[in-house]
Structures are given as structure tokens and as C-alpha cells.
Design a protein around this nucleic acid. Structure first.
Lengths: 248, 248
DNA sequence: AGCTTGTCAACTGTCGACAGTTGGCATCAT
DNA sequence: ATGATGCCAACTGTCGACAGTTGACAAGCT
């Protein structure tokens, strides 16, 4: 566990260390290597990445703004824990975004315009048939990105992306099950069809429905969780406090 | 201009300096005291606020994540300049958010639930009649906040707020003209009526229309601006570079 | 025993300093 | 004159150090 990280940290110096560190930490969080609720030990992080605490602090501040991390004064920063309720709100926002984007694309859809989506749809279906969850997952991301791109709204795409990251704060269970994959892809097909038809209302409905479906699947697989401590409830033991860097 | 800032900086120490500084800088940007495209001189800022550069840097990093600031390595951070096109995208997102929220509220509206909105609506109309733009502006914010609250989606409210801040990167001209005020309030009324009726589709349409109207007013009052330099185009003179702190 | 109080180690918050980079300006050659 | 070249000041990026705070643990009191 000495230094298994061959990250770009050592490589490019065209970006500030802080930005690299931010990217690095974000990766650790999203990949689950640092779990929600867990503390970010600045010193340990700095040592692990081979930089001083300055850049680490700057990075953490950025992450804080973007909602992945919460800071407590004189105590430290913790990976944000999300209550189911909050996650559902985020889903709702994605519903609105996706429905709007779909409607917007439908309003001026042409076969040429839809070409990228058609391509992704084909690949998506192939992945579904092959039960290739990993590929499907990646293509799914592409599908949504393409939708926002067609809607000529990169800002919305970026936002959608960020919200997706927040959602990663939950263990992504039940996301890649074959059954869900089939369901999800049927929804993709519905969106695309509405787009082809240039049917604004249908496109919006299909777009919304797709995310609502995801939301429902999420809600179904998560208990109401009233028990979860708001956020770093007082009871953090020192043992926990020390555990900035888990097994690694 | 020695130390005219009686900001909370000196007062509360229950929050970290960095967060106070971030708030301070954000205020300077949103109030236009630091104009879009202008450079943020860390040293000057630190001196002005009476802290060292550390907290200032952390604050700027946060602002960077939230989109108010862009950083260039080894050169500095600049208040973000927004192209009209980007602003329109942001408007679009607000359209989606507002429409969705209105629809969501309409779906389960009751007189009791709508009470807060009714109250704000009354005040709004009073402000409109009195041509009290400042009050109207504040109440308008309240109206939207209340809408999202009723939609049980504080996350969306927060997001809407943040997007509003980004929009402040544009001089807010044409926002508080009497004519617009009347128009805007008529739209508020339409939303509320649809909510009372529990008409989901109408509520969504009214909600969207309200923002689309704002968007249109914005677009009308802004040239297409292809001329605007992408962002800190190479030509920053040193004179400009030095002008971190303008007149003050 | 249970509760209070004092002590301690681990961190965070903040600062000051140093090195590296950038762009501008003056100088020099063509 | 015009363009290339070298120097210089102003900053940013990064680091190491110090002070203050927090929570835990142990000793002492009721």
C-alpha cells in the first residue's frame, strides 16, 4: 500500500496541483474508495498524493462547493452523506432537465440531427442484448449527453453530469441489473421515437418518464432511512476520526 | 478607502475565514464592484480583507467550482464573463426547473398549501401598483423560492438560486422597468391561478412561460455579442492586470 | 458507580516565505 | 523604423511552521 497510485499527478504540470488533487479526490469519492460520511484527513491526503496541505485544502473547498463534501469548522471535511429524500430531489431535477431537453429537441428534430442518437441507440440495444452492463452504462451516459447537446444546451449537460455525481454518493446498487437494463432501453427507444415524430409533448413525457423510472427503481431499492445521522452526528469516535485512509 | 468594510469578517469566528472571504468576494462580484472579466488579485484581496492569501485562494477555488470565476494557471483568476448564448442556456434550465416545480405543486395543491404563495402574490401586486421595484424584486425572489418549497424540492431552489447568481454576471438592465414589472406580475398571477385550479399542464405552461418571458426580455436587451472575447483573451494589458482593485 | 474536571494528542486554520512563471518594456541588431 | 532578444517586476503556486480548537481519555470527586 505504499504508492500504488500512478496518477497524472506527477505528469502534467500544465494544471495547478490543486485542480489535479481535486480531480483525484473526486475520483476517490465517486469510486467509493472514500465512503460517504468518511472523513477527509488533509495531512494524510497530502502525504498520499505527495503535495503539501495547501493544494489539498483548495481542492476540498472546491469539492465542498460542488456538493460532494461538507466541512465542519475545526473538525474537518467529510464526504457528504445523502439522505434518500435528497437523492429523490436530485432525481426530480433530472426529470425536469431531461423532459425539457427532449421537448426542445423534438421541436426541431430532423433525421440528420438525430443521427448521433440513432447510432447510440443501436449500440445501446446491442449492449442490452449482450447483457453487457458496463458498456450499456457508458452508452447510457452518452445518450443523455447527446440529448443535451442536441438541445444546444451544454450547460444543462454539465449540470446533469454534476447531479449524476452527487447521486453516486449512494452505492449504485440495482443500477446494472439486466431487468433494469431492458426497461431502461425501452424508455430510450420511446424517447427517440417521439423525437423522430417531432412530437414535443410525447418527447417530454418520454424523457421525464425515463428518469422517473430510474427514480422509482432507486426509491424501491432504498429504505426510507430515517435512522441515518443527519451528517456527522456528534458521535464520531476518534477511531473513526483517524480512519481517513482506510485499508489502502 | 482605507478600511470601509465593516463586514462580518472581524466578527464571527464560528465559520472559517475562507468561507467568509468567499461570501465577501461573491458579494463584490454580484454587486458589480468587481466586473466580469476583471482579475482577482489575491494579494490585494488578502490585504483588503485583512487576511493572508491562503483563505483567499481557498475562497476563489470555491467560486471557481460554482462558476463565478475562471482561473488561468500562473496568471490568475478572473470573474467569469458570460456570453449571451450561455446566459440563454441558463435561462432554459430555469425554464425547465420552474415549469416542473409548478406542475408538481399543481398536482397536489390545496388552498392551505397555496397560502404562502397567495400572501406573496398580494404583496407583489401591491409593490407593482406602488412601482416599488426594489420590493418587487425581493418579493419575486420569494415567490420562486416559495414555489420550490411547495414542490418540496429545496435542492432545486438552491440550484435556481445559483443559476440566478450566474445570471447576475450580466449587468441587470431592463429588469426593473415598470413595464416589465407589470408583465412579470401578470405571469405570476397566471401561475397561481393554474395552481389553484390544480391544472398540472396549465401550471407547467405558466411556469415555463414566466421564465421564457424573462429570457425573451433578456435576449431582446442584449446584442448577439460575437465580439466579446472568449475569456480573458490574450490581450490583457498589464494595466488591466494591475487593476485588481478598481477605484476603492 | 456515576459524573465532573484536567490533560493530551491530533488536526485544522492561518500565516509568511520562497521559487517559478508570465507578460511588459527597454535595448539592440537589422 | 521594425523586429528580435534579454531583463525585470508582479504575481501565482507551493510549502513548512505555528497557534488554536476539538474530542477522547484518565484521574479525581460526590
Amino acid at each position: 500500500m505504499s504508492a500504488p497510485l500512478a496518477t497524472p499527478l506527477e505528469i502534467v504540470r500544465t494544471r495547478s496541483l490543486a485542480s489535479l488533487v481535486a480531480q483525484e479526490i473526486e475520483g476517490l469519492i465517486l469510486s467509493g474508495q472514500i465512503a460517504p460520511g468518511e472523513r477527509l484527513n488533509e495531512q494524510a491526503l497530502a502525504a498520499r498524493l505527495g503535495v503539501s496541505r495547501g493544494p489539498v485544502r483548495e481542492a476540498v473547498r472546491g469539492l465542498e462547493r460542488s456538493g460532494l463534501v461538507v466541512a465542519v469548522v475545526n473538525q474537518g471535511s467529510y464526504v457528504r452523506t445523502m439522505r434518500v429524500e435528497e437523492a429523490l430531489q436530485v432525481f426530480d431535477i433530472r426529470v425536469a432537465l431531461t423532459g425539457h431537453a427532449a421537448a426542445s429537441v423534438a421541436a426541431r428534430a430532423t433525421p440528420a440531427l438525430l443521427a448521433p442518437l440513432e447510432r447510440i441507440m443501436r449500440d445501446l440495444t446491442a449492449a442490452e442484448r449482450a447483457d453487457d452492463a458496463a458498456t450499456y452504462y457508458a452508452l447510457n451516459l452518452e445518450f443523455h449527453a447527446a440529448l443535451f447537446e442536441l438541445a444546444a444546451n451544454p450547460r444543462a449537460a454539465q449540470l446533469y453530469d454534476g447531479l449524476g455525481k452527487e447521486l453516486h454518493l449512494f452505492r449504485r446498487r440495482a443500477l446494472l441489473q439486466p431487468e433494469n437494463m431492458r426497461q431502461s432501453n425501452a424508455e430510450h427507444a420511446a424517447i427517440l421515437q417521439a423525437l423522430r415524430d417531432g412530437d414535443v409533448a410525447a418527447a417530454r413525457a418520454a424523457g421525464e418518464h425515463h428518469i422517473v423510472g430510474g427514480r422509482a427503481r432507486f426509491a424501491a431499492s432504498h429504505p426510507s432511512d430515517q435512522s441515518r445521522p443527519q451528517q456527522v452526528a456528534g458521535g464520531e469516535s476518534d477511531a473513526r476520526r483517524k480512519s481517513g485512509l482506510p485499508p489502502g
